[in-house]
């Protein structure tokens, strides 16, 4: 081998080495620049949170300079507490009533957007129960989840002018079995899960009462962060919200792909369930003010109404600082392209 050839080899080797080194520096450089944050969900991985999984899988978070860990929730943990304590940076937790109650008990939790625009809960009863309207709940046993969902029932009863003491309110487990066995006359369902599972089991002789028909609209799946994050790293909060809403918009425009991403993120999920769930989540998220203003919009008018009715029947001691609880400034700054339908 001639000297020149050898030098060529050495040089190309060196060049390759240098390129690799610079690539590595680049990689670690950008990794160091990416802000490590986490988002805590209110339940395990499923299509209810498709937008977040899509934003992660499609690199929207990464492009926004965020290194996001998605932490699933479960029945044993309170996502709101974890975000308020700073254990998780962001969260998809509770909804209108939950936020009001969190603030009433001084949790430093701030809602920066609302995912679901219409109340995702409904009350079901059998066709032969003799219950034809919410007014007929009087004297009947009505089951609901005591994980924050009970406040929606309280609001509905208040709006219909029924004293709570006239209704036998019982705690509902997260299985619909007792309702199937007719242990209570009315049960609570979410439109994106329990209603689907009832129908899947061939139970179609049921009727639905929706809180929105009683004049109670509560937004659910609040996107939250802590007061501290807002004060110390508002730009990170903004980037997270932009990318999350962009993820949701993409999920609704590419639903099959979004379901694929969700299925890969969880384990043991059924495609059919997740497709049905995503359809219903889309209905809920693109309704109400989202139609005109965009995904994630906070409906202050409905929040004020819910607060007033909660105070009226003692579900809330007094008014909370709504401006501090629901901070719209970030949502307002989300580029229209990322949120407008």
């Amino acid at each position: 081998m001639g000297f020149v050839m050898m030098m060529k080899h050495v040089m190309s080797g060196l060049a390759a080495g240098l390129m690799m080194a610079s690539a590595m520096i680049g990689a670690t450089g950008s990794a160091a620049a990416a802000e490590k944050v986490s988002v805590r969900l209110k339940w395990v991985a499923q299509a209810q949170f498709a937008g977040i999984y899509v934003a992660k899988a499609k690199g929207f978070y990464e492009a926004a300079g965020l290194d996001v860990t998605v932490n699933p929730g479960g029945p044993n943990i309170n996502a709101a507490t974890l975000v308020a304590s700073g254990s998780d940076t962001f969260g998809v937790v509770s909804g209108t009533e939950g936020m009001l109650n969190a603030r009433a008990s001084d949790l430093p939790l701030v809602c920066i957007a609302m995912s679901q625009q219409k109340t995702p809960y409904a009350y079901v009863t059998y066709d032969d129960s003799g219950i034809n309207s919410v007014k007929d709940f009087k004297g009947k046993s009505v089951a609901t989840w005591f994980t924050g969902t009970q406040y929606t029932l309280f609001s509905v009863l208040a709006h219909e002018g029924i004293p709570q003491s006239d209704v036998q309110i019982v705690s509902q487990p997260f299985s619909m079995q007792p309702f199937i066995d007719r242990q209570y006359q009315v049960a609570t369902v979410t439109l994106y899960n329990e209603l689907n599972t009832l129908r899947e089991q061939g139970i179609n002789n049921i009727k639905l009462f929706r809180p929105d028909d009683s004049g109670v609209t509560t937004q659910q799946d609040a996107i939250v962060t802590s007061e501290r994050m807002i004060k110390e790293k508002p730009e990170i909060v903004q980037s997270f919200l932009n990318a999350t809403l962009k993820g949701w918009k993409y999920a609704f425009q590419h639903k099959a792909e979004a379901v694929d991403i969700v299925l890969a993120a969880g384990s043991g999920l059924e495609r059919k369930h997740q497709e049905l769930m995503l359809d219903e989540i889309e209905n809920l998220m693109t309704a109400g003010v989202a139609k005109t203003e965009g995904l994630g919009a906070i409906d202050m008018a409905s929040i004020e109404k819910v607060q007033a009715s909660l105070i009226k029947f003692g579900g809330l001691k007094g008014p909370v600082d709504l401006k501090a609880t629901f901070d719209q400034s970030f949502w307002n700054k989300v580029p229209a392209d990322d949120k407008k339908l």
Partner: peptide, 27 residues
């Protein structure tokens, strides 16, 4: 198993939780 109900994506507890949530009795 209870620990997995504090939030996770893998494990018998997670699968059990999902099966209960989706009313998949066979599962």
């Amino acid at each position: 198993i209870v620990g997995e109900w504090f939030g996770d994506t893998v494990g018998l507890g997670v699968l059990l939780l999902q099966a209960l949530y989706f009313e998949q009795v066979t599962r």
